[in-house]
């Protein structure tokens, strides 16, 4: 080693500092992974990421607790909210998805239904799962789905076409600033090798 600490220099321990720095690095690495649950909790509390079915203020994980379907307290006829519908099919799933209802004008609190047409383009029976996302994210907590094809996996026979309904309420507690809500579905392929996706029940 070419480092020969000169005697006139105060000898400071490299090892001690090295251990401290390694501890900082380990902490930073752990912090990076801790961001994942932190982000989930943060989104749960604020409803930031547009996942529906989450109850702000409760820490139940989305997808585990069943939706609480309280009857609409009242219908807010003083304002109209536009809900737009989108459907996408993720790569690897040979399906086609079209919203039959492209948009709806409704009063918050009203019970509404939208339809989506899904077609299997392949010659195989395929299982798919739709994942919803609401924009703006803050509207998600007030978007209550009473019945949805995304609550369960959908099986389509070769060439089969299915119309899939969604029944929902936009709750009157929705922010006055929000006049348009976009609900986007993405259909994912469910493969046998993917247990996480199999157990999936998304709201």
């Amino acid at each position: 080693m070419s480092v020969s600490v000169n005697t006139s220099m105060p000898v400071r321990s490299h090892r001690q500092l090295l251990i401290k720095l390694l501890a900082v690095i380990a902490l930073a690495f752990a912090f990076g992974f801790a961001l994942v649950p932190l982000y989930d909790v943060f989104c749960q509390v604020t409803g930031l990421n547009g996942k529906t079915g989450a109850k702000p203020g409760t820490l139940g994980l989305a997808g585990i607790s069943k939706p609480v379907t309280a009857p609409p307290s009242s219908i807010d006829r003083s304002r109209t909210v536009t809900v737009e519908f989108m459907g996408t099919v993720m790569p690897g799933l040979p399906w086609e998805m079209t919203p039959l209802t492209s948009s709806l004008d409704l009063h918050p609190g009203e019970l509404q239904q939208a339809m989506f047409r899904v077609r299997n383009l392949s010659d195989k029976t395929i299982v798919g799962q739709a994942i919803p996302s609401v924009s703006p994210g803050l509207a998600a907590q007030h978007f209550e789905k009473l019945d949805c094809f995304c609550f369960a996996q959908q099986t389509l026979a070769p060439g089969e076409t299915k119309d899939m309904p969604l029944t929902f309420i936009v709750k009157p507690e929705l922010d006055k600033d929000i006049r348009t809500i976009t609900l986007a579905y993405a259909f994912f392929i469910v493969t046998d090798t993917n247990p996480a996706a199999k157990n999936l029940a998304s709201r």
Partner: peptide, 30 residues
């Protein structure tokens, strides 16, 4: 020292999402 490990985390999660069936960033698994 403070942020390179965080990058390592992010790309490790990408790696496991790509190859080992985790769903950190994959909407299909939440």
């Amino acid at each position: 020292v403070a942020v390179m490990p965080v990058l390592a985390c992010a790309i490790t999660m990408l790696l496991t999402d790509r190859n080992f069936g985790t769903h950190f960033f994959d909407a299909a698994g939440g």
